[in-house]
Amino acid sequence: MKSAIAALALALLSGFVPGFANAAEITGAGSTFVYPLLAKWSDDYSKQGGAKINYQSIGSGGGIAQIKAATVTFGASDMPLPPADLHEAGLIQFPAVIGGVVPAVNLPGVAPGALRLTGPALADIYLGRVKTWNDPEIVSLNPGLTLPALAITVVHRSDGSGTTFNWVDYLAKVSPEWKARVGEGTSVSWPTGVGGKGNEGVAAYVQRIKGAIGYLEYAYILQNKMTYALVQNAAGRYPEPGKASFQEAAASAEWSKTSDFDLVLTNAPGDGAYPITATSFILIHRTAGATGAVKGALDFFRWAFAHGDASAEALDYVPLPASLTAAIEAYWQANLP
């Protein structure tokens, strides 16, 4: 009996104490977009004997602010920081995972993927210039589709968000007017529309309002089985959103020509590249050597890049191509000797 209690106590202790034994518990915070995946990776990693990585979604801007304030070991952001900012704050940056932002629509009678839109058309819709679904600009793109004379309700994120950043970055790249009037950022001054809180809020409004259009992370489109529209890419094609088209966008990007991986994947070249492909970046302090918590975090990402692809794909994310993870390893060696 006594030994049973002792064994139980020991089991409990061994369950709880690793946090102490493994002195550096590692905390990360930031992007909501990578939260599910990092939670999954962290769980897999700890089950294989790795350190416990606690990642919390507080938003990309929060991730940047918290890593600058040094309250976390690493931050995550869907928007890359320019190298000048990184150096000023003493940070390094590398991509972690790739996904896509997809327009969702509520158009009765229109099948998922049936509606086709170009970047300029999306910009005109979000500028409030194209107000109905049977506007000539949309009809001319969809000869085989009968579009109703329904008013368009634009839905955007109400909270600041990395998803928004990638969406408006794309609109700014394809529409000079958007670039001049609205610009880009994690939150912008929207010319029109209603704001939903989080992806869930946007999804809820799009599902509820007939004639609505909103932009969502790919996982929400899949999980909520929503009707999405295809967007024309830089090569003039309309690729289906998904692993193949996201990965092609990632592969077409010339990461080697950037410094600190400062690259946004939207409007990437390549026939099959998805036009609104988004990357999540990890931010870590540039320390004299990779020790303690920083080393723990790098070990975690090294493990994730090597063994985390299946988990990523199961959650509808796209893992980084091998060429990119090799470049990241080299970047670590160069910056954290």
Binding site: S158, G160, G185, S187, W190, G193
Partner: peptide, 29 residues
Amino acid sequence: GNAHEFSASLLMPSTSIAAAIANEFTEAD
């Protein structure tokens, strides 16, 4: 709805001080 826009209609989204802080503070870059 956190829309920073004036509208006379009560059915339209707007924002409040507390909601703007809660929605945007974490993303203020």
